[in-house]
């Protein structure tokens, strides 16, 4: 697993008091890990700090709420990690 995944999983485990071994690349942050919107803001804050990026959480939430994207696209761990990697790559480009 990538270092990004390890970092994000560690942040979620610490922020939400979830056992680290429960978090896998297939975990859905909302459905499987039970993370609510307020807790996800805490996670976004820690991710933004760790990677020097700005997760577009409001945009993602709006797209999901309007049915323009499935929640899995943003909130399954492997997809979240891929998007973080893309944001980091864009920042460094």
């Amino acid at each position: 697993m990538s270092s990004t995944f390890e970092t994000v999983a560690g942040i979620i485990a610490e922020t939400c008091d979830i056992p680290r071994e429960q978090i896998t690349p297939e975990s859905h942050a909302i459905n499987d890990l039970g993370i609510d919107s307020l807790a996800f803001l805490d996670i976004a804050f820690a991710i933004d700090k760790a990677f020097g990026i700005k997760l577009p959480l409001e945009q993602w939430t709006q797209e999901v709420n309007e049915g323009k994207a499935p929640a899995e696209e943003y909130f399954v761990m492997k997809n979240l990690v891929a998007r973080i990697d893309a944001l980091v790559a864009a920042k460094n480009a």
Binding site: L41, A44, K54, E58, Q59, T61
Partner: peptide
């Protein structure tokens, strides 16, 4: 500290 998406610190 940080102005994030949907939050501020």
């Amino acid at each position: 500290d940080v102005m994030g998406s949907g939050y501020a610190a």
